[in-house]
Amino acid sequence: MDLLQLRYFQVVARFEHISRAAEELMVAQPSVSRTVARLEAELGTPLFDRQGRRIRLNRYGAVFLRHVERALSELDDGRRALLDARDRGLGRVAIAAETLLTVTRLLGSFRAAYPDADVRLFQADAPEMERRLRAGEVDFCIASQPLTGPGLEAVELVREEVLLAVPAGRRLARRECVTVPETADEPYVTTRPGTWPRALLERLFAAHGLAPLVSCESDEPGASGDMIGAGLGIGLVPAMSRRIGPSAGIAWVHIDAPDCHRDLTLVRHRDAYLSEAAVKFREFTLSRPFMTHRLPDPPARG
């Protein structure tokens, strides 16, 4: 058993697809197949269930994967620790976030305070953030949804109200507060399933036995304001975006729902190595107000 086999197995397990794994690894597909087959032969146990050209990680593979990811993560941490000890800078800190709008000002301030830090930023959804944390590819995730993988710990940065953004001139734009059912006939601008704005939208509607009318679906939550301002529909937008995002042509309306908020958290793997840059980033983020200027509570209805 060697590191190449373990790396190949990890990537194949992630994609459950030999061709996609080969593309990720930038090697020929037969090489990936042979390497995984040799690993299974050495272990004496199949790690995947194969049905024609399709493969699925089986229960033996899932057990083995947990140990492989820990082992590879330790080796990657060792490599990073060695580089940090050799180099004169603060080392690298890697951060993943669902939308870059959330972290732009934070990272700008951090870079100004620590210019020797090597900062890397990735955009990812919740499952991809969990995977990157487990694999040691990032040090922190700034998440708007719970990340609950083994060994992950989260610190709440802020809880902020989520508002209804309405194109100016629409009937709801004249309201201060609306209920979810009152928006049921309106087209929504939102993000794809699995992202936090879509999850919140579906949860709010499901509480009333309804489903939202989705007219526009994107991959970038930060782009919703532009599309709403262009009149493509209404949408859920965090209060932060009212302050730092585009607001021309948009009216902001409170939603009469007790859980219409976003919890923003800083998540890390508790056992992962942190470079000096990563330690400084954590201290920097937790020691300063993070979007704490909140909007007033919704007015009482009636």
Rank of each mutant, 00 (worst) to 15 (best):
V93R: 01
L286T: 10
R50A: 06
S224W: 13
I255L: 15
S287M: 12
L200Q: 03
A117K: 01
I142M: 04
V138L: 08
P30G: 04
A154M: 07
Q123S: 15
E128Y: 00
L232C: 00
L107S: 01
L266Y: 05
P187H: 06
Q5Y: 10
D125W: 06
V166L: 10
L121H: 04
P299C: 05
A165T: 02
E182I: 10
A97M: 06
E202F: 03
E283C: 06
A113W: 06
H293L: 15
A230Q: 02
E16H: 00
G89V: 02
T35L: 11
F281V: 00
G302K: 10
T292P: 05
A113P: 02
V267P: 01
S224V: 11
I18A: 13
L47I: 06
R80I: 10
D271N: 10
V237T: 11
V162L: 02
A272C: 01
Q145V: 12
R38W: 08
R262P: 06
L6M: 03
A239G: 08
G108W: 05
H254D: 12
E153R: 13
L100E: 11
P296D: 14
V63G: 10
S218R: 15
D256G: 00
L213Q: 15
F64Q: 09
D297H: 12
R203C: 02
L232A: 11
V237C: 11
D259N: 11
V12A: 05
W196Y: 14
P212C: 00
L295H: 01
C177G: 04
A278G: 04
T265S: 14
V36H: 00
R262K: 13
Y273R: 04
E98F: 01
E23P: 09
I228W: 05
S247Y: 11
D87S: 11
H293G: 12
E98C: 04
H269N: 15
H208Y: 13
F15C: 06
I18P: 07
A22D: 04
F110D: 04
R174C: 02
G194E: 03
G151H: 01
A257Y: 03
E160M: 09
F281R: 05
A37T: 13
I244G: 09
C216D: 15
C141G: 06
S73P: 05
E186I: 04
L82G: 11
V279G: 12
L164K: 01
G194D: 08
R86P: 08
A143D: 02
G136C: 02
R132P: 08
G136I: 12
